[in-house]
Nucleic acid binder design. Structure first.
Length: 504
RNA sequence: GGCCCCGUAGCUCAGCGGAUAGAGCAGCGGACUUCGAAUCCGCGUGCGGAGGUUCGACUCCUCCCGGGGCCGCCA
């Protein structure tokens, strides 16, 4: 999706040329406000020299409202300079759209489910799960903003060998004994032993609490134990074959490298088996797209999950598995081996105690999900003060201060005369927002948000430094520019689950 | 052996076919009697290597080198 003010120019150019035109912001300011390579792209198709097509395009551009000047540059670029009226149009668009600016980019809205975190309830959430939580929740926020109906699910693995071992560990503590050799050792095991009741339920309650603190709200909690009860019914609906006494799903038909056992020769289902009733539940809830957010160590699941979708008669393409690379912990520059069973981990709650939700979510989202991430435990607090999140929040708070001082005086997106360079840069930055959000959504790459937020803050701070807002001739226009900037910053941060403070 | 991800500035990273590759941090030097200095301004011969596709490649393809992860009738 593109801002309307830009899209209007693109359409005007495209209609004149008969080929699609996309405008982009050149890195060199001498190349104008916007530029297009459409002539270069059209040259092979129309079998004409690019410079000739560019000249045609320049003529069309010159006649468009909002265009002050158009120029051709070799080997065939067309560079546009825009007039104050265009800037007024672009700024009015931001303000008119209000909180919805940049939203609703989905061509067709869907019912989407995002399953994420789904950490085993054998211990508190760790920083490893935190990346999953930050990434998955931001994906969900982006999808909602694009117009989809989104459900967030946490799948609780409350059955199986690890859970048995966990319960045994707590029971041993309750009897005053040491946990089993491979059992769970962390301090929290002792805490749970001091309480009555099922430690798994208590652990789930704590995980829920930590997630809420992290501003992640799950709509649905599904338990593996419940899925086991409807396992036979679900397995009866898919085609399995027998070999070596076991029952297999032909996952290779959907791209897996080998078929998978669903029911063992002794009649016990594998771990994989419960994914069948589990996914059936998701489809039965009416979802049209299923998203799973998994760590890189689970990438082998992609084909299996798609296979289940196919076996259940659904389109495997509607199952999307988002893989993020893992978080490595270091301490004083040395790699730190972690094991939840040994209790040798950094819990999300500890990280939040140290650096707070905003800095944590920002940091976890600021790198591509395809990039492995390192968190230095010792430097976490020190780095906090240098976290760019505060730079961005400061810009928002500064604007809030100006608006407080303005005491409700009128604002207007229409500039009186020519804009200063810093004003033009800021308006163009705000006009980028719909494209940035739409691309972040489509690519499932929320790390574009912090990058963009820094640029907006950057442009605003420069504008602020160069120009006075209140009591200036352009007060009304600059107040409008401030309001629009604050709204865009607030929305960008919200899509990351980060707050936009009025004061700091 | 097969599969997934990554090699870009001293460090952590953006960049998803365009013009002179950008931020943050670290370092050095400047700027407050004015709406918040948690700010602004200046200082940098960097895309792991070799081929290929293209008018144009950090970006796409192949191979090589280096780092991380995964390949169970475990969960």
């Amino acid at each position: 999706m593109t801002a309307k003010a830009i899209a209007r120019l693109e359409r005007g150019l495209a209609d004149g040329l008969g080929v699609p035109v996309e405008l982009e912001r050149p890195s060199n300011p001498e190349h104008g406000d916007y530029a297009t390579n459409a002539a270069l792209r059209a040259a092979p198709i129309r079998r004409m020299p690019p410079m000739e097509i560019a000249e045609e395009l320049r003529a069309v551009a010159s006649a468009l409202p909002g265009v002050k000047d158009a120029a051709v540059a070799p080997p065939g670029f067309v560079n546009l300079q825009l007039d104050p009226a265009w800037y007024g149009e672009a700024l009015a668009e931001v303000l008119d759209a209000g909180a919805g600016y940049g939203g609703g980019s989905a061509a067709e809205t869907e019912k989407v489910q995002v399953e994420f975190v789904s950490a085993n309830p054998t211990g508190p959430l760790t920083v490893a799960s935190a990346r999953n939580a930050a990434y998955g929740d931001s994906i969900a926020r982006l999808l909602e903003f694009a117009g989809h109906t989104v459900e967030r699910e946490f799948y609780v693995n409350d059955a199986g060998a690890q859970i048995d071992l966990f319960r045994q560990s707590v029971d041993a503590r309750r009897r005053g004994e040491e946990p089993p050799p491979d059992g769970y050792q962390g301090d929290y095991v002792g805490e749970l032993a001091a309480l009555d009741g099922d430690p798994v339920q208590e652990m789930e309650r704590r995980i829920r609490q930590t997630l809420e603190r992290f501003r992640v709200h799950m709509d649905l909690w599904v338990h593996q134990s419940e899925m086991e009860e409807v396992l036979d019914d679900a397995l009866a609906r898919i085609e399995l074959y027998e070999q070596d006494g076991a029952r297999w799903l032909k996952t290779t038909s959907w791209g897996d490298d080998k078929d998978r056992v669903v029911v063992r020769a002794d009649g016990r289902p594998t771990y994989f088996a419960v994914d069948v009733p589990h996914m059936r539940l998701k489809w039965d809830r009416g979802h049209e797209r299923l998203i799973y957010v998994l760590g890189a160590d689970h990438h082998g699941y992609i084909a299996r999950l798609k296979a289940i979708a196919g076996a259940l008669g659904h389109d495997p393409e509607a199952v999307e598995v988002l893989i993020y690379q893992l978080v490595h912990l270091t301490e004083g520059g040395e790699a730190r081996k972690v094991s939840k069973r040994r209790g040798d981990v950094v819990f999300l709650d500890e990280l939040l105690d140290e650096i707070g939700v905003d800095a944590a979510r920002w940091h976890l989202l600021s790198r591509s999900h395809d990039q492995a991430m390192e968190i230095d435990v010792d430097l976490a607090r020190e780095r906090t003060e240098k976290n760019p999140v505060y730079y961005v929040q400061y810009a928002h708070a500064r604007i809030a201060g100006i608006l407080r001082n303005a005491e409700g005086r009128p604002s207007s997106p229409e500039p009186l005369g020519a804009l200063a360079p810093a004003e033009r840069e800021l308006v163009k930055r705000l006009a980028e927002f719909p494209t940035v959000v739409a691309e972040a959504t489509e690519r499932r790459g929320p790390h574009a948000l912090p990058t963009y937020a820094i640029r907006v803050a950057d442009d605003f701070h420069r504008f602020y430094h160069d120009h006075r807002v209140l009591e200036s001739e352009e007060e009304a226009f600059r107040l409008a520019l401030c309001r629009a900037t604050a709204a865009v910053i607030a929305r960008t941060l919200d899509l990351m689950g980060v707050e936009a403070p009025e004061r700091m």
